[in-house]
Write a protein that binds this DNA or RNA. Structure first.
Ligand SMILES: [Mn+2]
Ligand SMILES: [Mn+2]
Ligand SMILES: [Mn+2]
Ligand SMILES: [Mn+2]
Lengths: 218, 218
DNA sequence: AATAATTTTTAGATTTATCTAAAAATTATT
DNA sequence: AATAATTTTTAGATAAATCTAAAAATTATT
C-alpha cells in the first residue's frame, strides 16, 4: 500500500525531474514539498526501500519505472478531475487546482476510466497541460513561450507555465484564454515587454507575463 | 483542522446514535470502526477536547451540535457522490460505496454545491437513503420493512437496509430494484418466508431478505 | 590545495493513531 | 449482597511523518 504522503513525494520528484534533470536533489524536493531536507532524506530512503526511486547518498534521486508509472497516473487523475470541474461543475480555471490536489489521490481504476469516458477522453487540462492516456503515454505538442515568439508571428494560446490563481485572473481580466488568437506586434528592447494585438485591440504585456504563456505559431 | 480519522469516528458515532440510542458505547464504536476499544477511548477524549462529542467516562458519547453538523455533511457528500457514480459514471449500486467512502472526505464547499446542482438536487441516493440538504435537513419518507407488510399489500421498493454488495447482487439477480412494484401474496408461518408477485412472476424470499428491503405501501 | 559555503545526512525528539496487557468500573448472575 | 462477566480505561509500546540541531560530505571560492 502506498500512502498519500508517498504519492505526493513521488509526484514532486516527477515534476522536478521532468525537464532533463536526472537526479533530483534533496533540497529541491524539500522546497517543492514545503518541508525540511531532513524529512526528505527520511522519505527518500523509504521510497528507495519500496523501489519507487533510485537513491545514492548525497546524489539525489531518480524515479524507477514503477515510480514513474505511479507519478504519471497521479498526474492523469489530477488533470482529468480539473477538466471535470471546469467542464461539468462550472469551476473557473483558477479554482480547480486545490480540489484536484485532493481528488488525485482517490483510488479506483473504474472511477478514472469512467470519468475519462464521461469527459469524452480529453487530451488537455484547463491549463493546456497534456493528459496522459490509460497507458501513461503523453503526447506533447510543440508550444513555445510567447516571449520566444518573433515579431509578426500570429499565435494561438495553448497553455500556461504558471497556473497560479493570480496569473490566471490576470489573463481573464485581459480576455486571454486558451484558444485566443494574437499577433506579436512589437518588442521593447529596454524591458522586453511586448505589444500584442488581440482581434483589433492592442495590449502591452511584460516579459514576465510573456514568459508564462505558451503559444503555437499559426 | 479536522483529520480524516476524526471524520470517520464522527460519522460512525452518528450512524450508531441515529436511531434513538443516546449514548454510543465505546465497544459499539470499536466494532463499527474495526479497531480496539482502547483506541476508541483515546480518540473519544480527543473528540471531546475538540467539542465534537459530549463524553463522560464509562458513559459513552453523544455528538454535540457541531459534531452532528459535521456528520450530516459527510453523509450528504457520501450520498451525492454515490448518485454521481451511478447516474453519470455508470457504476452499479453495489460498486459505489467503497469509492464514496473516499470521496466523502474531499473538502470543498463549492465542489459539493455544484455537484448537487449538476445532479439536479437528488433527494435520495442509489440505495434509497435520503440526502441531507445544504442546511443539513433530512426529510424521511415513511417506509417499512417488507417483512412488516401485510398479506395482500401492494408495495413499491424504496430502499435497502443492508447495502452490502452480496445483498444488492441478489436483488439484481431477481430483478428487484428501487421503484419495483410487488404484491405480498403469502407468508409461510414456519420460517416467515414470504411469496411476492412482481408483475406476473411469483418469487419466494426468505425472512432475512424481507428484513433488509424497505417498501412503501401503495 | 586550503578554506569557506552549501547541501545532505544523522541523531534524537515530537505528534498522531494505533496496539497489547493489565487495572478499574460497571453490569449481570447467582 | 457477593461473585462473575463484561465493558471501559490506563499504562506503556510501536510505526509513520515530521521537526531541530549538529555532524558529515560535497561544491565553490580564494
Ligand atoms: Mn493543477
Ligand atoms: Mn492543470
Ligand atoms: Mn454508501
Ligand atoms: Mn448509499
Amino acid at each position: 500500500m502506498i500512502t498519500l504522503t508517498e504519492e505526493n513525494y513521488i509526484k514532486a520528484i516527477y515534476h522536478l525531474g521532468k525537464y532533463g534533470v536526472n537526479n533530483v536533489s534533496t533540497n529541491a524536493i524539500a522546497k517543492e514539498m514545503e518541508t525540511k531536507a531532513s524529512s526528505v532524506t527520511d522519505m527518500v530512503k523509504k521510497l528507495s526501500e519500496k523501489s519507487y526511486v533510485d537513491y545514492k547518498k548525497y546524489q539525489g534521486v531518480t524515479l524507477t519505472q514503477k515510480g514513474k508509472e505511479i507519478a504519471i497516473n497521479i498526474v492523469r487523475k489530477h488533470r482529468l478531475w480539473e477538466v471535470f470541474l471546469v467542464e461539468k461543475l462550472n469551476f473557473s480555471w483558477d479554482e480547480v487546482h486545490e480540489v484536484a490536489e485532493q481528488l488525485e489521490h482517490i483510488k479506483s481504476k473504474k472511477l478514472i476510466s469512467q470519468l475519462d469516458a464521461f469527459l469524452e477522453f480529453p487530451t488537455h487540462d484547463p491549463h493546456g497541460d497534456p493528459i496522459p492516456d490509460k497507458m501513461g503515454h503523453i503526447k506533447k505538442i510543440d508550444k513555445i513561450l510567447l516571449s520566444e515568439a518573433e515579431i509578426g508571428n500570429d499565435c494561438i494560446c495553448v497553455g500556461v507555465q504558471d497556473s497560479s490563481s493570480e496569473f490566471l485572473k490576470y489573463l481573464d481580466k485581459n480576455n486571454i484564454a486558451l484558444g485566443t488568437e494574437l499577433k506579436v506586434c512589437h518588442r521593447e528592447a529596454f524591458d522586453n515587454s511586448i505589444t500584442i494585438k488581440i482581434k483589433t485591440k492592442e495590449l502591452i504585456i511584460s516579459n514576465m507575463i510573456a514568459n508564462n504563456l505558451f503559444v503555437k505559431i499559426s
